[in-house]
Design a protein around this nucleic acid. Structure first.
Lengths: 230, 230
DNA sequence: GCCTTCAGGATCGTATCCAATCTGCGCCAG
DNA sequence: CTGGCGCAGATTGGATACGATCCTGAAGGC
């Protein structure tokens, strides 16, 4: 690698793997051999290793000792926990935005909603990514970088969870709910804004869990079968 | 190296660096050259680098390109943000504990408070560590591992912040406030428990900021002077 | 005298190399 | 025919080697 000093190669590999996982190109449980990834991106295993360490620390991949790295397969319990944290964090974001939304904040949010509308009918990956980015954008507008970083991580893991459990991504984040949340924030109605956000996230979580209820034998075997297929 | 297969060497280095930073053996702004750390622990740069990546992703160190890694020096703004997130997360922990405190939870918490009392008058490092561990213990009792992990990270960064700004660590976490929080949780009084927790954290944060107000020239120079001394 | 510039050293970023470990398959005993 | 054992291949874990980049500091020109 090493063509332009823009950024380190590790970051590039990290970003690509991140996107690939979120967009479901890399499915949960899939193996990530270091040299395969490395030669695919034209970098050495060292780079891939570092990227995988970062991804693991964020919970997107798990690595078993001397076995290698795999795309994380959150259990339902983990999913529940992650959604619990997400609801907590995003409620805080909402509260903060009612207090102190930056000048151009509403414009940015509404522009994003329009983009979401634009790809509403289209395929899942872009839609799911945009839906996540809306929440990340909100977090960034809160002015709290730490909070935004955590929201980013949690949203990513939620995308992974949706990839595992939900089957109808097209309706993941109802864009209308996004608009309603914006409206409540603009109106300065904290209680309503937070309630809308929690309902919004609750709806997403319930949808995921609902689709997962088939925890019957065939569902489990199907998942293991998918892992078998590498 | 490589004598006991207990765990990976990376974890060991990570833990040691983590503790060293929290206990202020490694002071904010201090350089962490990979070679130095490596030969100090008897491991190669590879290991150190992985540990540093993890530490950086948790905000305990920052690394500048081709410059190396440094113990993080949170600004007051960052400190404010971190405390904001911490208040949010720990309020959620408190709420969860009122709902579902595990069987032996109160015993564990009270045992910890007793240990805190035991070292109350003693030196800072142990006291500050125990104070942090109390909050981590609460988070772990919440049964939400993701939440507990984030609380752990935030508490660590707060310890670092206290190390920078506060000068009287002995009274960081008033042990009595810990007891009061436990009592409120036991009584099932969510509102009071959350209020106590937020007040508790607010007090800690204010104390830190109050001590930091001398952002005059000499304070800044003192900090740089400390960095100069490596 | 001050600023610019360039050489030196130090440190990081990346690649390559060796050792340890796990997996998979075949072989043999029961 | 079944189940355990052992060897070979593959893959990771860790260490070392080399090139790139950046800071330091001193020498030279304005």
């Amino acid at each position: 690698m090493s063509e332009h000093g823009k950024s380190t190669a590790t970051d590039a590999v990290y970003d690509l793997l991140c996107r690939a996982i979120i967009e479901q190109s890399l499915k949960p449980g899939m193996r990530l051999p270091e040299d395969t990834v490395g030669e695919q991106f034209g970098v050495s295993r060292t780079i891939v290793r570092h990227a995988l360490v970062r991804l693991e620390s964020e919970g997107l991949v798990v690595s078993k000792r001397n076995r290698g790295a795999f795309v994380a397969e959150p259990t339902l319990e983990e999913a529940r926990q992650i959604f619990e944290v997400r609801r907590c964090l995003e409620a805080e974001v909402t509260r903060l935005l009612v207090q102190r939304m930056p000048r151009t904040g509403f414009d940015a949010l509404e522009a994003h909603v329009r983009r979401e509308h634009g790809v509403k009918g289209k395929d899942g990956p872009v839609s799911i990514r945009l839906a996540g980015e809306f929440h990340v954008l909100m977090a960034e507008l809160s002015g709290n970088d730490v909070l935004a970083k955590y929201v980013t991580q949690v949203v990513r893991r939620c995308s992974l969870i949706m990839a595992m459990f939900a089957n109808s991504h097209s309706s993941d984040c109802a864009v209308d709910e996004h608009s309603q949340i914006i409206a409540a924030i603009r109106a300065g109605d904290t209680a309503r804004a937070v309630a809308l956000m929690e309902h919004h996230l609750g709806a997403v979580a319930d949808r995921a869990k609902f689709d997962a209820t088939p925890d019957t034998v065939e569902a489990i075997l199907a998942r293991y079968g998918r892992e078998l297929a590498q």
